[in-house]
Amino acid sequence: MFRVVLYAQWKWSRLVVTLGTIAAFILPALSVQGASRDVGSPLKAGELLSLVQSWGVLYPVLAAALGLLVAIATWAPDHRGRHVHALSLPLPRWRYVLLRFGAGVVLLAAPAVALLAGAVLATHLAAIPPGLEGYPVALTIRFALAVLVAYAVFFAISAGTTRTAGAILTVIGGLILVQVLASAADVHLDLLTPVQSILLNWPGPLAIFTGRWMLIDV
């Protein structure tokens, strides 16, 4: 059963996964460009760190994008048919959901592996000044976890009926709208910071996205 679900999911998300894999592979190389051993003068530590840091912003973006798009692709065919087909299959709903989730995880392993390969390659080829080190494995693990969290969150939102998904997004949108209006009207109302601190600070699930993503660090 898992094999056919995986295959179907691959058909829907192959473009996203392929592009994401390529992006994950080249991103580390891009982030250390100019620091190659062959080229003239090696970069100073400070320059390298800021270069790596600014490119590092793209990792969480890529992770979130992959998580979102693969999650949407997972549920798109079911939504179109209003889940009738899935519900008429002879297995409990939770097992079906698990199959779908697992298929997405397997597909998302590809960009993570690509990142590892690219990161290892980049740190190997780059001329790293003394005092700094490459952390390709740590970066990859963090990336993989971020992808997983993003995928899980959007998967959960998409798994429900369109109505539930719409409701959740409406609530979020509503919160943001109220906040914007409140600050425009100069009313002291802080809805988002508490929510933010719950979610984004450790051990909130979205904490993994915040902070600096450093391929090379002290």
């Binding site: 179907a8 058909k11 829907w12 065919p77 179109r80 048919g81 209003r82 009738v84 087909h85 008429s88």
Partner: peptide, 11 residues
């Protein structure tokens, strides 16, 4: 056999 066929259109 449902009223509206609703399989994955990409298969």
């Amino acid at each position: 056999v449902p009223e509206q066929p609703h399989l994955d259109p990409t298969l």
